[in-house]
Amino acid sequence: MAEIGNSEKRDIERFLYNEAELLDHRKFDDWLKLFTDNGWYWLPIKADQESPLDTVSIIYDDRKLLETRVRRLNNVNIHAESPPPRTSRILGNIRVEDRNPETGAISVMSRFQLVEFRGERQRIFAGSMQHSLVQVSTGFAIEGKRVDLVNAEGMLEGITTLL
């Protein structure tokens, strides 16, 4: 399997920045298109959580549930997003880690900080992300995305913002 070269690393960074912009611009349908047909989206409830199957998560969506989640965000009757939140996120420390020799998937680690404003409240989310990316004809696709909030184990208030 070929090494991951500098130009490919730049493509991956551009892919992640584009994903972040789609979310801040609330283009959820376009964001969903970044995922593979069996892609998953996971926010564990513990820093060292190994599996989404035997422990609860803040979010664990397979493709089917992720589609429903996104469709709900686009539904006009979503009370929790009336008014909708505004978000601004900064992505950094992007590290293209390795390529899985069997599946060809590339593991990418990064960190983020996000400011969310809605109604009368502003709050900050921060943590690390792990993308598992696969190459497709259009570039890359997300086969899995894990987001570890620094306060995942804390007492949080309702979250509708996609991280």
Partner: peptide, 19 residues
């Protein structure tokens, strides 16, 4: 919002059980 989103969901989409 979640009822309508779920009613409109295509059941043939991949699910590992969560969906």
């Amino acid at each position: 919002s979640s009822i309508e989103a779920a009613q409109q969901q295509d059941d043939d989409v991949f699910s590992d059980g969560a969906g």
